Measured scan of single mutants.
Amino acid sequence: MTVLPKDIPGDSLKVTVGTANGKPGDTVTVPVTFADVAKMKNVGTCNFYLGYDASLLEVVSVDAGPIVKNAAVNFSSSASNGTISFLFLDNTITDELITADGVFANIKFKLKSVTAKTTTPVTFKDGGAFGDGTMSKIASVTKTNGSVTIDP
């Protein structure tokens, strides 16, 4: 049996954390987006972790974005102690894959008090994996961190 590389060099799934701005007490939304989904033969499963400074940001909610089908079954998240974990699994293993680019999740943060303008990162942590529509590992994932700026 011969195994051929399935990824064209330079191609990767792009996962990007967005940015937001606000004043202390505001609730802002930071999107997590996927790009080049079709090039990577869709997404059938993924789990990953984001870190944030809990002294500056309070997670209000984490909701599935419009590219997630049947989110009540296929999407899960949790947030505590400065870490947000995400889990997606197409429970049907074929019919509810992520097949389009767009917003995977929206994180709502309540901004805490600061004395001066502060930009705090929302960054990928170690761990996690992504699988394509056949549940094979997506070897190349380009992750881009985001941030939230609090301006009193």
Rank of each mutant, 00 (worst) to 15 (best):
M1T: 08
T2P: 10
V3P: 11
V3C: 13
L4G: 10
L4Q: 11
L4Y: 14
L4H: 09
L4A: 07
P5M: 06
P5H: 08
P5I: 07
P5E: 06
K6H: 12
K6N: 12
D7V: 13
P9A: 09
P9T: 13
P9M: 13
G10R: 14
D11F: 13
D11K: 10
S12T: 13
L13A: 11
L13F: 06
L13N: 08
K14L: 09
V15Y: 05
V15A: 12
V15F: 01
V17L: 13
V17P: 10
V17K: 01
T19M: 09
A20K: 07
A20M: 12
N21R: 12
G22A: 10
K23I: 09
K23M: 11
P24G: 09
G25N: 09
G25D: 11
T27F: 11
V28F: 09
V28W: 07
T29L: 12
T29V: 11
V30P: 02
P31W: 12
T33N: 10
F34T: 08
F34K: 10
A35S: 10
A35Q: 14
V37L: 05
V37F: 09
V37W: 03
A38I: 13
A38Y: 11
K39N: 13
M40K: 07
M40C: 14
M40R: 10
K41H: 09
N42V: 08
G44D: 03
G44Y: 00
G44E: 04
T45C: 07
T45Y: 00
C46Y: 06
F48Y: 13
F48C: 08
Y49A: 01
Y49Q: 00
L50G: 04
L50R: 01
L50D: 07
G51V: 09
Y52K: 03
Y52L: 11
D53N: 09
A54G: 13
A54T: 12
S55A: 08
S55T: 12
L56M: 10
V59A: 07
V60Q: 10
S61R: 10
S61W: 13
V62D: 05
A64P: 10
P66F: 13
I67W: 04
I67R: 13
I67M: 09
K69C: 15
N70T: 10
A71W: 04
A72K: 13
N74F: 00
F75V: 03
S78L: 15
S78F: 15
A79S: 15
A79L: 14
A79I: 15
A79G: 09
S80H: 09
N81D: 14
N81S: 15
G82Q: 15
G82H: 15
T83R: 15
T83G: 15
I84V: 07
I84D: 02
I84Y: 02
S85V: 03
L87W: 03
L87G: 00
D90R: 02
N91S: 06
N91V: 05
T92H: 02
T92K: 05
D95G: 03
D95L: 02
E96D: 06
E96P: 01
L97R: 03
L97V: 04
A100T: 08
A100Y: 06
G102F: 04
G102V: 12
V103W: 07
V103L: 03
F104R: 00
A105Y: 01
A105M: 00
A105Q: 00
N106Y: 08
I107S: 01
K108Q: 06
K108Y: 05
K108I: 04
F109R: 02
F109Q: 03
F109H: 02
L111N: 04
K112E: 04
V114R: 12
V114H: 08
V114G: 08
T115G: 06
T115P: 06
A116P: 06
K117R: 06
T119V: 02
T120S: 07
P121F: 03
P121Q: 07
T123P: 07
T123W: 12
F124Q: 02
K125P: 01
K125Y: 07
D126Q: 15
G127A: 03
G128I: 00
G131H: 01
G131N: 00
D132F: 02
T134Y: 04
M135N: 01
M135I: 14
M135V: 03
M135E: 02
M135T: 02
S136R: 08
S136V: 01
A139W: 15
A139T: 05
V141Y: 01
V141E: 00
T142H: 08
K143A: 00
T144Q: 06
G146D: 06
G146V: 05
S147H: 04
V148F: 04
V148P: 01
T149G: 15
D151M: 15
D151R: 15
